[in-house]
Design a protein around this nucleic acid. Structure first.
Lengths: 142, 142
DNA sequence: GTACACCTTAGAGTGTACTCTAAAGCAATA
DNA sequence: TATTGCTTTAGAGTACACTCTAAGGTGTAC
């Protein structure tokens, strides 16, 4: 799941009970430090600990949550919706049902999107074949 | 492929050798008139005929090209890349190979994206199952 | 002790793809 | 002939998700 170098960071961090700084977390998950701060600023990423200097210290729980956020973003969930989900999560177990409904609704959207993508792949596949035919013709006539 | 109402427009338009105005084209393909003008302004949609009043008159060829543009957009091809494709097309048959290469490259991207989507669908699927379990527990304990 | 490389914040700037507005012209209807 | 509803254009505005900057603080290396 992670590269060797990154596994090493994780091992070092969590086995030695050290929290990650923003740079380490950024490298680990592939979001820029800017984006990590942005997600925190808009309230999508709450409760990140700070050290004596006010520097961010990310825990393993933060890591898991950020990975989940990335998963949602990769499925094109808008930030506004992710904020809503995040707020529900903050409210605790009473919102589990609502969260499930949200995820299921998004699941449906992604499935629809994939169907559309498949359909369009077929179309451009046909176009590619058509072009291959044209290329041959041009080649033979030369 | 089209709804009955829209098939009627098409029948009326092409069987009677009438060209479509911007409103009709907009309804037919599901892009706003704004977007149709925008695509023309940036040069992605060239050679749309005009009547004596300077109003746009879309041909069947325009329709097919716009549908292809929509297909590319639905597969998240950036406008800049679509512009490039459009420019190649304008240059004629000598660019067929380059166009095919572009389409194949994009095909690959879409396949990768779909793999990613599938992976993430698995993840949220697992989360949904987890939530279902939690919901049951809460229900039973009450 | 000073250079360098990190961290913090608020807030400004960017890129993409539209989306809308204002001002003006055309055409059918009351 | 005036209203309504369409069309045109250039150009301004919007939404989204970052991405960057400026100004200041901290910590280690020489």
């Amino acid at each position: 799941m992670y590269s060797k170098a990154i596994s090493k960071i994780l091992w070092y961090a969590f086995c030695m009970e050290k929290l990650l700084n923003i740079q380490e977390m950024s490298k680990l998950i592939g979001l820029s430090t800017h984006t990590l701060r942005y997600y925190e600023k808009i309230g999508m990423l709450k409760g990140v600990a700070r050290n004596e200097q006010g520097y961010r210290c990310y825990s393993e729980a933060d890591l898991l949550w950020i990975q989940f956020l990335i998963c949602l973003r990769e499925m094109d969930m808008p930030i506004s919706e992710m904020m809503h989900y995040s707020n529900l999560r903050t409210q605790g177990d009473s919102t589990v049902y609502e969260r499930r409904v949200m995820l299921e609704a998004h699941q449906d959207k992604v499935v629809q999107q994939m169907n559309k993508l498949n359909e369009n792949l077929g179309r451009i596949g046909a176009k590619i074949e058509h072009y291959k035919g044209l290329e041959k013709t041009v080649f033979c006539e030369k």
